[in-house]
């Protein structure tokens, strides 16, 4: 027993050659966010408050694809989405299509707590944000120079493969690496179990570069990118459409519940079962276990448990 926390800053084709100038700030940010989470848990905050707090911090960090730093749609705009879920009650809230809300994760929590609904999107969600008085800024705040460049590169690379106005060419291998090699990587998330065994999960993202306007990914879909119940809390990241099809987050819980697998076995089974290069996730159990499997090249991740274990990593141990 005891608390545990894990967080991620996206999984994908993170090149092993990632330069220190790109790697170190992200590792620092992961360490910083992990410390914030650990301190919150140690000061007896509820798991739900902890995951919200950590994800807010990740959203505020411009190097991750959520909140400030969100990648751009094909129109050069941001459309952010987020989701939060409480394990013991299975209460949950989700938002999509946000353009001005500084911390989407906190709006998701307000949807959960202040409306009869679970999920608000686009204009309705923006109107709700104003009604609730959450921090909003001009949409340009979220747009970094780096992401304008990424969009430009993605548009050039995607013109053939992903232009939906053109017939899809079968089996075209996607070679869409932007120069920095991590333009497709997105999503931040945090899962936690506190000293009282409360489980919670939160996930937030800007989606993927050059996405169609209005596209909703796995992040706000309960059971796909985000899920928690009494057995585990899960936050997933990777290729959204694959995660939706595989109902990744719910399946970790379902394998524990229906097949009696352990957290680690269940998470590994789901990640192995998904197409290679598509999925990573972080998960915790009520007894304080933590697991962070991925079938991509890498996943920005960090975790800590009450018994003193702590890890910050990008690639798997054999690679790095």
């Amino acid at each position: 027993m005891g608390w545990a926390i894990a967080l991620h800053g996206g999984a994908g084709d993170i090149p092993l050659s990632l330069s220190p100038e790109r790697r170190l700030p992200r590792e620092d940010a992961l360490r910083h966010c992990l410390n914030i989470g650990v301190n919150a848990i140690k000061s007896q905050q509820h798991a739900l408050d902890v995951v919200e707090l950590v994800v807010r911090e990740l959203e505020n960090h411009p190097n991750f694809n959520a909140g400030r730093g969100s990648v751009l749609t094909s129109f050069g705009t941001v459309e952010m989405e987020a989701c939060i879920m409480d394990g013991n009650t299975k209460r949950c809230g989700a938002v999509s299509g946000l353009t001005t809300v500084v911390n989407p994760i906190s709006l998701a929590r307000l949807v959960m707590e202040k409306t009869p609904h679970i999920y608000l999107a686009f204009d309705g969600a923006e109107a709700f944000a104003r009604e609730q008085g959450v921090d909003t800024v001009d949409s340009s705040h979220f747009i970094t120079a780096e992401n304008i460049e990424r969009l430009k590169q993605a548009k050039e690379a995607n013109r053939v493969q992903l232009d939906y106005t053109q017939p899809i060419q079968k089996e075209v291998k996607l070679e869409t690496h932007a120069a920095d090699g991590d333009s497709q990587i997105g999503t931040v998330g945090c899962v936690a179990v506190d000293n009282h065994g409360n489980l919670a999960t939160a996930t937030s993202t800007g989606g993927f570069v050059n996405k169609m306007v209005g596209r909703i990914g796995d992040t706000p879909i309960i059971g796909a990118g985000t899920y928690a119940n009494h057995l585990c809390a899960v936050s997933a990241t990777g290729k959204g459409e694959a995660i939706i099809r595989c109902t990744v987050a719910r399946d970790v819980a379902a394998l524990m519940e229906f097949k009696g697998l352990s957290l680690e076995e269940a998470a590994a089974s789901v990640v192995e079962g998904a197409p290679r290069g598509t999925v990573g996730l972080v998960a915790v159990s009520p007894s304080g276990e933590v697991t962070m499997p991925f079938n991509t090249t890498g996943m920005f991740r960090a975790c800590a448990t009450e018994d003193g274990y702590s890890e910050i990593g990008i690639w798997s141990s054999e690679q790095s």
Partner: peptide, 21 residues
């Protein structure tokens, strides 16, 4: 959707795994 829902409300029907699978 739900009568008198908030504008922007998304329900189970379009959610893969919830309303449809």
């Amino acid at each position: 959707g739900l009568m008198n829902k908030m504008t922007g409300r998304i329900g189970d029907s379009p959610m893969i795994g919830a309303g449809t699978y």
